[in-house]
Design a protein around this nucleic acid. Structure first.
Length: 288
DNA sequence: AAGCACACCTGCTAGC
DNA sequence: TGCTAGCAGGTGTGCT
């Protein structure tokens, strides 16, 4: 399932590929993909004729910046954007030839002025796209509830520690709380906790200053390595990039989805643990 | 107010 | 072999 690194890989590729292209037609095959929009016809009308000026990201949300109708200036308050969330199984696919057969579950298609198509494909339909305008800080207004981005805006350790103070919730759950820190999901919270040597089930408020410093460092280290490897593609959710290519960071996973396999550091068996309805993974020996 | 439980949805798998 | 039940997951909402 796409988390921050996967979305960042898509963002970089998309930015390089479609910046300056103009949307000439929008097709909506499934309304649910636009469930935050009033109706798909007005969504399509609003996009047609607009140029893509840049592609940004906040946490797991992709932000496609569009040229303003009047002056085409991007990035200022009030400028239009389309926010895309890939959910669990969503993919953005860019094809050069619009005649290429569309995969099943292609819910939204943007036809570009150079003949290419940007397709939103999402079997499990947890993903969505919707319009939003940029607020004063440069973020889409619809995303102001998100905490700082876990890569671009990672708070300093002392500020992270303040966010953990007094919390009984497990540190893994706290890391995945998008209102506190945006971008981490089940995969990367497991890997970050492992690299920090901290059990995910520990109450967030129980972490020492030194442990928060380790968590802070592990966060940046893991996210950068995952982006370098172009993200994680696991068996079921099948993350692939704009051109359909899988990432390779799953081969570097130390603990996630590796229950019963040996820890790459100490050889102990990786344990699976329940966090509500979710499962987390960790090394019982390396993580305290 | 923090922390839970649940709905949403589909494809895959384990078990019968 | 063919069916069904269970599971996976992020976000948003609503309850305690």
């Amino acid at each position: 399932m796409p988390e921050l690194p996967e979305v960042e890989v898509v963002r970089r590729d998309l930015d390089a590929a479609v910046r300056g292209a103009r949307v000439v037609r929008v097709e909506v095959g499934r309304e649910r993909a636009l469930r935050r929009e009033g109706d798909s016809a007005s969504f399509a009308r609003a996009l047609c004729g607009r140029s893509i000026t840049a592609c940004g990201r906040v946490g797991k949300f992709l932000v496609v910046h569009l040229a303003d109708e009047t002056d085409g200036v991007d990035g200022v308050a009030g400028a239009p954007a389309v926010v895309v969330h890939l959910g669990m199984s969503g993919q953005l696919r860019l094809v050069g030839d619009a005649g290429t057969e569309r995969p099943p579950h292609t819910h939204v298609v943007w036809a570009l002025d150079d003949g290419r198509e940007l397709r939103f494909v999402d079997p499990r339909t947890f993903g969505q796209m919707f319009r939003s305008t940029l607020s004063a800080g440069g973020r889409p207004a619809a995303l102001t509830h998100l905490g700082p981005d876990a890569l671009a805006e990672l708070p300093e350790p002392d500020q992270l520690a303040r966010g953990f103070f007094g919390r009984r919730a497990p540190v893994k759950v706290r890391l995945m709380d998008q209102r506190a820190l945006a971008g981490l999901g089940n995969i990367y919270s497991d890997e970050i906790c492992f690299h920090a040597g901290i059990r995910g089930a520990r109450p967030a408020g129980s972490l020492t200053d030194d442990e928060v410093v380790r968590l802070h460092a592990a966060c940046t280290r893991v996210l950068l390595a995952a982006i370098e490897a172009r993200g994680s593609s696991l068996a079921d959710a099948q993350y692939v990039d704009l051109l359909g290519r899988p990432g390779s960071y799953q081969h570097q996973h130390a603990v996630h989805a590796r229950a019963g396999l040996p820890c790459p550091v100490c050889g102990a068996r990786i344990a699976r643990e329940r966090f509500g309805k979710r499962s987390g993974y960790g090394c019982p020996r390396c993580q305290r």
